[in-house]
Write a protein that binds this DNA or RNA. Structure first.
Lengths: 333, 333
DNA sequence: GTGAAAGCGCTAACAT
DNA sequence: ATGTTAGCGCTTTCAC
């Protein structure tokens, strides 16, 4: 159905190569011919076949963005950042959702060996090995950039935030506000949450707070399960008087539970979340957040990728750390 | 770098066609040869080139999802719905963000003629013509499904919600709660907001509320501009005592402004929003929402598309209307 | 049961 | 300035 270069050639009594060259404004072709061809192309809405081009130039003009979830402020903002640079570069963005399934992620990476994309931007799922062979193999064959959630031991470019530091400072803030019994809610085996946990623990150590083992609640991927275990912890014997939620969704669970259980924030329990919710200030009560520069992270990661695609640089050793921003609100007053 | 069928053939001393057939489990090929080839393919991580395949079978296995924004609960949920069926069908999802720019949307549609995708799912930007030629031309050439925001006069499949009805009912609810001077905040030239406006007006007419012209505030795409005009309206001479926000973002502006201006919700002004915010109940005060079945809409739209791709049906005349759900909360008590 | 060859739409090296 | 040809990786007749 779509019109091809061959048809143009036939209709205009030219060779395909002449048309091809005219279309790419080659100096070899006369102005008159160029005009003819361009006019015809315009009128017939000629658009070159993406696949034929890809096959020839070994460039698909596609990049992949692999993320656990799109209904999440961090990832949707990051995708916006990525898209902003991809659009500029004339690239198309394939979005792959893993829904936090490592198995699904491996499948996707395998598919990505088909040449469908020229590069990969990825934020890994909980449970992916820090030295995953699948990730490192693909990274060897195609420009590959981790953002936010990385495989620590895979040699590839990385764009992250200061998770350890920001968690450390947020925890100190909580302790400064008088918390004696803080709880860190971890979102499962993930580079970022582990960093954040370590920052949390360092603050505890600094202030001489003991029984650190019991101060971490580990969540998994099952939402209702998580809600149950968080509730148990919040209403149980050794109630925490402060909570750090390692990801946004867990903070929302905490709010819902406190609501239902009539636990007052911040009087009974102070809350801080790693979250990029723009409307955190409109919650009841307004939520203190560690904000990551999500849009910028996406942008930076994408720029790195395009640098690699342009062969400007070898990005494998790049490791960009962007600062988070803490915003204190009612929930931790 | 990736391994090709040709290399397999050479290494195994076979013809490419034999390998191709073995790989697709053709009856012509001996079991022994099949085993050899499969084993080799396995070991060398052979993945067929996506582009060569597409060029040959004229099937890219890609679909496009064109939306104004991804950092929005409705669209991110809808994308999840779409992705769930695309994954099942072994399809890849290209996401195109228009950021509510009609011009950008036209560009994208033009690009989509390249055969890069086998089908298109789209929710149009504000300002796109209800009988856009660009949309209708593409729809003529490739399976095409509108969801939520449609071009009324373009012949293509559509999946929408009962905008008129739900807005009508929400407005009646507002009036029942005692509002005498309601305001509808419109998000610009869009099928859905126009339907919602009409539903709003019908309720006003039914209850004999006059000067209907002044009861609509029309917003555009400039966020700060919108905030200015909403604020002016909320603090101005003829303050509304009830507000219906036609899209989520506008509702958030209303909340922010009320916060800053010490306007009490619902005492001074009641608020209802068309919104898919899951945490609407955690806002201060909890926000009454008209929820659209966003995930399901994406799913249904995608299913329609795949029906068309499988040539099962001609979907052009399909017009699915799904019900919204109103949830009353504090903001409209 | 296996292989040779054409062709999908395009580009680029090489004629003319 | 224009045309001829080969080939990107694969599938698909059509021979053998």
């Amino acid at each position: 159905m779509p019109i091809t270069i061959r048809k143009i050639a036939k209709d205009l009594n030219l060779a395909v190569s002449t048309v091809s060259k005219a279309l790419s404004d080659s100096y070899e072709i006369s102005d008159e011919t160029k005009r003819m061809v361009l006019k015809y192309a315009q009128e017939h809405q000629y658009v070159p076949s993406a696949y034929a081009g890809s096959l020839k130039n070994r460039r698909s003009k596609n990049i992949a963005v692999v993320v656990p979830e799109v209904a999440d402020t961090f990832f949707s903002n990051a995708i916006n950042g990525i898209d902003s640079v991809a659009q500029e570069e004339g690239y198309h963005v394939l979005v792959y959702l893993t829904h936090e399934s490592a198995a699904r992620e491996y499948e996707i990476l395998h598919e990505l060996k088909s040449g469908r994309v020229d590069g990969v931007l990825i934020s890994v799922s909980a449970g992916v090995d820090s030295n995953s062979r699948a990730h490192s193999e693909l990274a060897d064959n195609v420009p590959f950039v981790f953002f936010d959630r990385v495989c620590k031991d895979v040699a590839a470019a990385k764009v992250v935030t200061d998770d350890f530091e920001s968690s450390y400072r947020a925890t100190l803030h909580l302790l400064d506000k008088g918390c004696k019994s803080p709880l860190y809610i971890d979102a499962g085996p993930l580079s970022i949450t582990e960093e954040r946990r370590q920052g949390f623990l360092k603050a505890l150590t600094l202030r001489g707070i003991s029984s650190q083992e019991e101060r971490t609640l580990i969540c998994a991927q099952d939402e209702s399960q998580n809600i149950v275990s968080i509730r148990r912890r919040l209403v149980g014997k050794h109630k925490p008087d402060g909570v750090i939620a390692s990801v946004e969704k867990l903070a929302m669970h905490v709010y819902e539970i406190c609501n239902e259980e009539k636990i007052r924030i911040p009087e009974d329990v102070k809350v801080i979340a790693f979250s990029n919710l723009r409307i955190a200030g409109l919650l009841a009560p307004p939520l203190s957040c560690v904000y990551q520069p999500s849009f910028e992270m996406g942008q930076r990661a994408a720029k790195l990728l395009f640098d690699a695609l342009a062969k400007k640089t070898n990005i494998v050793r790049e490791h960009i750390v962007l600062p988070s921003r803490f915003e204190q609100r009612e929930s931790s007053k």
